[in-house]
Design a protein around this nucleic acid. Structure first.
Length: 426
RNA sequence: GGAGGAAUGGCAGAGUGGUUUAAUGCACCGGUCUUGAAAACCGACGUGUCGAAAGGCACCGGGGGUUCGAAUCCCUCUUCCUCCGCCA
């Protein structure tokens, strides 16, 4: 959620920024400022009434003590009048606050100045292209869903039996590969200074609201009505919310967290060729990195995170490129996002495997996550990124590493998987 | 799931209807003293909000209520502790 004073003081920058998302926000921004003016006015007059009430109540107490009942009763009448006025003012204030918040919630984050304008994925900027020729596979190269059968990696049919479509069951060496990748990622992340957490997979409403999943992406999350809990769509949600409501000391920053969790996404209405195999599923594993940073450092931290994720893909020997998302393709809450895409030679397309974003104060405002800065208490900047999401990495490994001798695993995985290649089964 | 107890500032811990602008201690910060440090002493010391400022208002787990007035009384929810039950 954007800050009112940003809309007020930085109106021009906000409007220009939101234009990169293809949004003309002038009316809404002005509406917010008007509502906030009204809020101040109501609050001031209400506070004045309360101040009078407090003074009179103290006087009444004094009068009663000295036995001057008549005078006290006269004052009580006046206080009762005030009470009525206060009740009315508070109702109006509450209604104004509600409308203010509703309006504010409709505004997405303001893109950072480096974010290119644009309306769709077409307008994303290639920030770092794959150096050299993309690896070409033979004409008989197979997509991962076919390889999965040959090599016994996962089964969608078994998932249908136990659950439904979009719930892959990893089997044998596929399950082992999954576990190997999780461990590899966590080891690399902790070595880079991220502290490992194993958070709950179900979160309450406040938590879902803190990182912006509510009210924006309500339909995307699985919801347990019986207990009023949401299944997490990403570890970002519980990890960032670990610090909800905190007032940190400046020397605690930056805070670096990592965690492995399954992720649950309803992905309603997604069918077709682009979602075959592991391309889009309802449950998948992901290792996430999160940073809480001082505002002046957050973009340096974003660069660090991008370099770190790039290092993971380098180690896995996968061909990838980095995109800087345009305004129209960025998520609602992000100020700047880099996407990592791995080339799938067999599918002849790029697959998104990681998304690394700076949210600036958009999340911390909701989270009330602040730190003691020299010039006073300030909201921290929150950042996160996938490091990495498993299914598409597995898909990319299968497709890019397929040879007549089997799937040749990158060296860094040998000790984790316990062998240097995957062989066909059956 | 049942019975009982509890929730107060960074921490500990007073406070059961009216100068509570929440005592006191510890921690932290500034200062005096000291070659330096410790000790001692002095001072400052929560968050949000309105205001140029002075100052006002709100906040004692969350929400609601009683009252002229609520940390204090009532209702409700949540969490924690003790005991019982169930259980990987």
């Amino acid at each position: 959620m954007l800050l009112v004073h940003t809309l007020r003081d930085d109106r021009q920058r906000v409007l220009e920024g939101l234009r990169k998302r293809g949004i003309d926000a002038a009316i809404m921004v002005d509406r917010v400022v008007t509502l906030d003016d009204k809020r101040k006015e109501l609050q001031t007059s209400n506070d004045t009434l309360l101040a009078e009430r407090n003074t009179l109540s103290t006087e009444i107490g004094t009068l009663f003590k000295s036995g001057r009942k008549n005078e006290a009763n006269a004052l009580r009448e006046r206080v009762n009048e005030i009470k009525g006025a206060v009740a009315g003012a508070e109702d109006e204030l509450r209604a104004t606050l509600e409308e203010l918040e509703t309006t504010l919630l409709q505004l997405p984050n303001v893109p950072y100045h480096l974010v290119p304008a644009g309306s769709s994925a077409e307008d994303n900027e290639v920030y770092q292209d794959y150096p050299g020729e993309l690896p070409a596979l033979g004409p008989d190269a197979k997509p991962h869903w076919e390889l999965a059968e040959t090599y016994g990696i996962f089964s969608l049919e078994l998932g249908v039996r136990t659950t439904g479509s979009g719930f892959p069951v990893f089997t044998g060496q596929g399950a082992r590969l999954q576990r190997a990748l999780v461990n590899f990622f966590l080891d690399r992340n902790t070595a880079a200074g991220y502290t490992e957490y194993a958070p709950p997979l179900l979160v309450n409403e406040d938590t879902a609201r803190g990182t912006g999943q509510l009210p924006d992406k309500e339909g995307q999350m699985y919801y347990i009505t019986e207990d009023d809990l949401y299944l997490i769509p990403t570890a970002e949600v519980p990890l960032t919310n670990l610090y909800r409501g905190e007032l940190l000391d400046a020397d605690q920053l930056p805070i670096q967290l990592t965690g492995y969790t399954p992720c649950f996404r309803r992905e309603a209405g997604s069918y077709g060729a682009h979602v075959r195999g592991l391309n889009r599923v309802h449950q998948f594993d992901k290792v996430e990195i999160v940073q809480l940073a001082r505002p002046e450092e957050s973009y340096a931290k974003l660069d660090e995170m991008v370099a770190h994720v790039g290092g993971l893909l380098d180690a896995l020997e996968l061909p990838y490129r980095i995109l800087r998302l345009c305004g129209g393709d960025m998520g609602f809450t992000a100020a700047m996002t880099y996407d990592f895409e791995v080339w799938s030679a067999a599918q002849q397309r790029w697959l998104e495997v990681s998304s690394v974003s700076n949210f600036e104060t958009f999340q911390s405002n909701r989270l009330k996550l602040r730190y003691r800065a020299e010039q006073g208490n300030e909201l921290v900047h929150t950042l996160n990124g996938s490091a990495l999401a498993l299914p598409r990495i597995i898909a990319a490994l299968l497709e890019n590493k397929q040879t007549e001798q089997g799937i040749l695993l990158p060296e860094v995985l040998h000790s984790y998987v316990g062998k240097d290649r995957l062989d066909p089964v059956g």
